[in-house]
Design a protein around this nucleic acid. Structure first.
Length: 449
RNA sequence: GUGGUUGUAGCUCAGUUGGUUAGAGUACCGGGUUGUGGUCCCGGGGGUCGCGGGUUCAAAUCCCGUCAGCCACCCCA
């Protein structure tokens, strides 16, 4: 006897139907936004992931040596592969490059609820367009992918932040480069860490002004609209104004306005929350970053993304500005199941054929195959059984119609169709079967016939 | 990787202070029912009580270990 490996799932038909529904909605939504689907190998050179995330990632990868001695790993994320694909053909691809991917990813971590070792992700990215129009389009896709599944503004929010603002702001304190990245990391974790500890860490970077800076962090974290942000950053008692980089900041605030205006025009503001408190830990994010999180209850993260303008170049290709997000199936699936939005899309047959004896069966099988070729989903009992039993099977199959091949009907070269919902029946000549069924499938059989 | 907690049929769970052949509901299969279904009635299969060891006359029950799930850390691309 065997079980699936820890953190891996079996998909029985019911859950497979739920998963396919999710994929179908993701794919439809991405297509409607004009994104094109791409794919890449599941197994990649280990270095591809090390290059992006540093050597520490290896402990969280399914990594091994192949028989040729190559260091390889199952992909833990899509972005490095995407960067390779886009980077390799960057000069010949029409821009903006709008691509999406749906596929399985693997991380060697301790499995928990909402977090497995194998999971599916929907990735969408826009490359080659540095302006906020790309960020707006991407955020819109993220929101629409969730609403298309039946989720509402009551179920989730997008928290929107900006690493550029933070970098400009810190520059006013004379903090740049690695120190700035460290500071962002501290800001990102501050809600989960004791205030005193956070201050201590900041003091190593900011020295005496750590406390002032942290107060501003808290003020900025609470700013929920653009005017308030502007006020804190450029108002009378702003630190950075006196430091003299207010031009950069006001330019950046202009990007913010463009972004929000576009999202507003798409009527997506109800889903948005400005929250500079989230900066997302990853060092390679450069501009607008965002996170879709579940509201109420446990506030789990449903999707995350942001701009990563430097990454493609870092992986050895030409400079290519980029912004993207990833949405996982695990947390989202939990939420959809809880909200009853995965209503198992069980595929029921259109027709269940009920067959008399051996002679009738022969005639029926020929018809059944013809109907199948015409796109009907048709089932029948594989072994000979009584009519009563077969009607029971037809009911259990949840077929819309039963098609009755009895001696009586066939004597008139006809078959009887029964609408399994209404119970209405109709005799159809066999040579008109396909035509009549096409019609009946749409309209059903009226009770008065 | 660290700590806590749970583990009985495919699923949800009962199982008395340790006591004889481990139960129910549901799902599944068969029959009632060889010309009209989902209901109903009857019957059936399915368990090494997560696994291994220990204590005991006797262990699903107590002890130890281990594996797996869940929860909290770490991390979260």
């Amino acid at each position: 006897m065997f079980e699936s490996l820890p953190g891996f799932r079996d998909f029985y038909p019911d859950s497979c139907a739920g998963r396919n529904h999710l994929f179908r909605i993701w794919r439809q939504t991405a297509n409607s936004f004009g994104f094109s689907e791409y794919d890449a190998p599941v197994l990649e050179p280990l270095d591809l992931f090390k290059e992006k995330s540093g050597p520490e990632v290896v402990s969280q990868l399914f990594a091994f040596k192949d028989k040729g001695g190559r260091e390889v790993a199952l992909r833990p994320e899509m972005t490095p592969s995407l960067a390779r694909l886009a980077g390799a053909k960057a000069s010949s691809l029409r821009r903006p490059i709008k691509w999406f991917h749906i596929g399985e990813h693997y991380r060697y971590e301790k499995p928990q609820r909402g977090r497995l070792r194998a999971f599916y992700q929907f990735n969408a990215d826009i490359l080659g367009e540095p302006g906020p129009g790309a960020d707006a389009e991407l955020i819109a896709l993220c929101i629409k992918s969730l609403t298309a599944l039946g989720l509402t503004a009551e179920d989730f929010r997008i928290r929107l932040s900006d690493r550029d603002i933070w970098l400009h702001y810190m520059a006013a304190f004379g903090i740049e480069g690695d120190s700035a990245a460290q500071a962002l990391d501290i800001i990102d974790k501050r809600e989960r860490v004791d205030r005193g500890v956070t201050l201590e860490k900041l003091a190593q970077i900011f020295g005496d002004s750590a406390e002032d800076f942290f107060k501003d962090v808290e003020r900025l974290g609470k700013a929920k609209d653009l005017n308030r942000l502007k006020d804190i950053l450029l108002g009378p008692d702003s630190t950075c104004k006196s430091a003299g980089n207010s031009d950069q900041i006001s330019q950046r605030l202009n990007d913010w306005k463009m972004l929000l205006d576009q999202l507003d025009a798409m009527q997506l503001m109800p889903y948005l929350e400005i929250d500079l408190g989230i900066v997302r830990g990853l060092a390679y994010y450069t501009g607008f970053v965002f996170e879709a999180f579940e509201r109420g209850g446990d506030l789990r993260s449903l999707a995350g993304g942001g701009r990563y303008d430097g990454l493609v170049k870092k992986l050895g290709y030409d400079d290519l500005p980029a912004t993207g997000f990833a949405m996982g199936d695990v947390t989202l699936g939990d939420l959809l199941a809880r909200k009853n939005l995965l209503a198992t899309f069980i595929s029921a047959p259109d027709i269940f054929a009920i067959l008399g004896g051996a002679e009738e069966r022969k005639i029926a099988l020929a018809d059944i195959l013809a109907l199948r070729e015409n796109g009907f989903r048709v089932e029948y009992a594989l072994k000979e059984t009584g009519f009563g039993k077969q009607f029971k099977l037809a009911g259990q199959s949840r077929a819309k119609f039963a098609l009755i091949y009895g001696a009586e009907e066939l004597a008139a070269d006809s078959v009887k169709v029964r609408d399994m919902n209404s119970g209405a029946e109709k005799l159809i000549p066999r040579d008109r079967l396909n035509t009549e069924l096409l019609e009946i499938r749409e309209t059903g059989i009226p009770l008065e016939e």
